[in-house]
Amino acid sequence: MAQNRITSLFHIQYPIIQGGMAWCSGWRLASAVSNAGGLGLIGAGSMHPEIVKEHIQKCKIATNKPFGVNIPLMYPQVEEIMQIVIEEKVPIVFTSAGNPMTWTSKLKSHDIIVAHVVAGSKYAKKCVEAGVDAVVAEGFEAGGHNGREETTTFVLVPLVRKAIDLPLIAAGGIATGEGMVAAFALGAEGVQIGTRFALTTESSANEAFKKRCLALNEGETILSLKKLSPTRLIKNQFYKRVQELEDRGASPDELRQLLGYGRAKKGIFEGDLEEGELEIGQIASLITEIVPAKQVIDEIIAHYNKTVQSLYLQQF
């Protein structure tokens, strides 16, 4: 595969970025993805500051390739996390769930490459104003926390491409080489993949959670908790109780009380399949096995190249 603006920006072989997913994306997964030619991200959203530092240091030992840290800007200890990535000289930071203006200039002043995740083209324009280096356009299909706009990837990517000229990464519902080709056809120059990497050998997610995800059929995830922070969930007992509250018009405080503390950890990391918050993307229904991250990347690139070749032959 030829180099493009994403591979050049991040100094990686393939324009494939691993999503920095809470409870899935530790140093093992990040280093495995980076070693295989993509860009691995440590997911700081589920880590205390000292744990983030530990994972960064272990990732440095496990790979000599570029890697980054994904930081949700709504994280309560975000200032401590930012200080750690600066002190540890992390080369790349992906930010999300907040205003890119807040931290971009500070990070860039320390020679850190910054990408920001958006769910709409108006937010992408704010990224340009903030001076970010790349934008991730994440569609409604994605797992975990999502945009309120509920815009699908196929609609969002071309709208963002039309609005800005920054290097563009597509996310949401992408797990294959064919999906990568489709994203590139719409104007993306890279893909960020979460769900497929969450269901790999190196993912720190609980094995029971991984197996539950492999058994999902179409329609068995749904965007929920819209009054708090929209989150795509697997339908289970916890989801049903959320739905009951939402159907009767519960307040955000009532939903917050039900959610409590550590609900995602209970589901994804500890494997409580009924009372846990089980976050995963729609594309999970297409995944049938747990394999190493390197195999995922190798298969995506092989299918990407095969698809590009077959489409080249089909002229109308």
Rank of each mutant, 00 (worst) to 15 (best):
L29R: 03
I268H: 00
A36F: 07
E277Q: 13
I17S: 00
L156C: 12
V78M: 04
V118D: 00
Q315P: 03
Y123V: 03
A22I: 02
I287H: 02
K122D: 00
P66Y: 03
T221R: 06
N217M: 12
I113R: 04
G267L: 05
T221W: 06
A293P: 08
S121R: 00
F67W: 02
L233E: 01
R212V: 11
I169A: 15
K227I: 05
C59G: 10
A198D: 05
T231Q: 05
Y261E: 13
R196V: 01
P252L: 11
F154N: 10
I71H: 01
H55D: 12
L214W: 04
H145P: 00
T7P: 03
A183K: 05
A124V: 08
N305P: 08
S251C: 04
Y123M: 13
R232V: 00
C24T: 09
D111V: 08
G120S: 12
V191R: 01
L73K: 02
P72S: 07
P100C: 05
K227R: 11
R212T: 07
N236R: 01
I287E: 04
I222P: 00
G40Q: 10
H48V: 03
V85S: 04
G131A: 03
V296P: 06
A284Y: 08
P91C: 13
F10Q: 07
G271C: 10
A198I: 10
T288K: 14
K53Y: 11
L259F: 04
A171V: 05
P292R: 08
E54Q: 14
Q77I: 05
K126Q: 08
A97K: 07
E274T: 10
K235I: 14
T231W: 02
M180S: 07
K240H: 12
G271S: 09
V33C: 06
I164M: 07
K294E: 08
I71Y: 02
K240Q: 15
V132S: 00
G37M: 12
D272Q: 15
Q257M: 06
V181I: 11
A183D: 01
A264I: 03
Q18E: 11
A2Y: 11
I290T: 03
T201L: 13
A2Q: 15
S310A: 11
G120H: 12
I301N: 08
L214H: 05
V135I: 15
P72C: 07
E50I: 13
K106E: 11
Q257L: 02
F154C: 09
A175G: 06
T307Y: 03
A264K: 06
Y75E: 01
L186D: 01
